[in-house]
Computed example of a mutant assay.
Amino acid sequence: MTILYLLILVSMSCDVYSFGILMIETFTRIRPSDEIFTGDLSIQRWISDSFPGELHKVVDSNLVQPGDEQIAAKMQCLLSIMELALNCTLVRPDARISMKDALSTLKKMRLQLVSSRH
């Protein structure tokens, strides 16, 4: 492998990682630098430990309100988003999903959410 190829690969993997962190921040309203993350607990570990059964405890409470008619569809969408975010933030860069696949996954999620509302 050439050095240029390795630099491109590392750069793309870092972009995917950053995208995953951004999704986690957006849907939890918590930053990776928050004071709750000490020792071995990182924002990714926090989500991973809550996934899937206790995800409702870590996502932004404004997104899913008790009594919401669409709560099941919203929770399914949030599960898919957090699963994608976890796939973007895997420790090994070569194990992470590609941005192309991440975009494809997001488009599928959007279609599922829109179709569940009708």
Rank of each mutant, 00 (worst) to 15 (best):
S33M: 09
D34T: 02
E35W: 03
I36N: 00
F37C: 01
T38R: 08
G39F: 04
D40T: 02
L41N: 01
L41D: 01
S42C: 05
I43L: 14
I43Y: 09
Q44N: 13
R45S: 12
R45V: 07
R45Q: 13
I47M: 13
I47F: 03
I47V: 15
S48H: 14
D49Y: 10
D49W: 08
F51I: 08
G53P: 05
E54F: 10
L55A: 02
H56I: 15
K57D: 09
V58C: 01
D60T: 05
S61I: 03
L63T: 06
L63H: 04
V64Y: 05
V64L: 09
Q65F: 04
P66L: 02
G67F: 05
D68Y: 03
D68S: 04
E69T: 06
Q70T: 08
Q70Y: 03
I71D: 07
A73F: 06
K74S: 01
M75V: 06
Q76P: 00
Q76C: 09
C77N: 02
C77G: 00
L78M: 09
L78P: 01
L78T: 00
L79S: 01
L79K: 08
I81F: 10
L84F: 11
A85T: 04
L86C: 11
N87Q: 13
T89L: 08
L90V: 11
L90K: 15
L90F: 09
V91T: 10
V91C: 00
P93T: 05
P93M: 07
D94K: 12
A95H: 15
A95Q: 15
R96D: 09
R96L: 10
S98G: 05
M99L: 11
K100A: 12
K100P: 00
K100T: 08
A102T: 11
A102E: 06
S104F: 13
S104K: 14
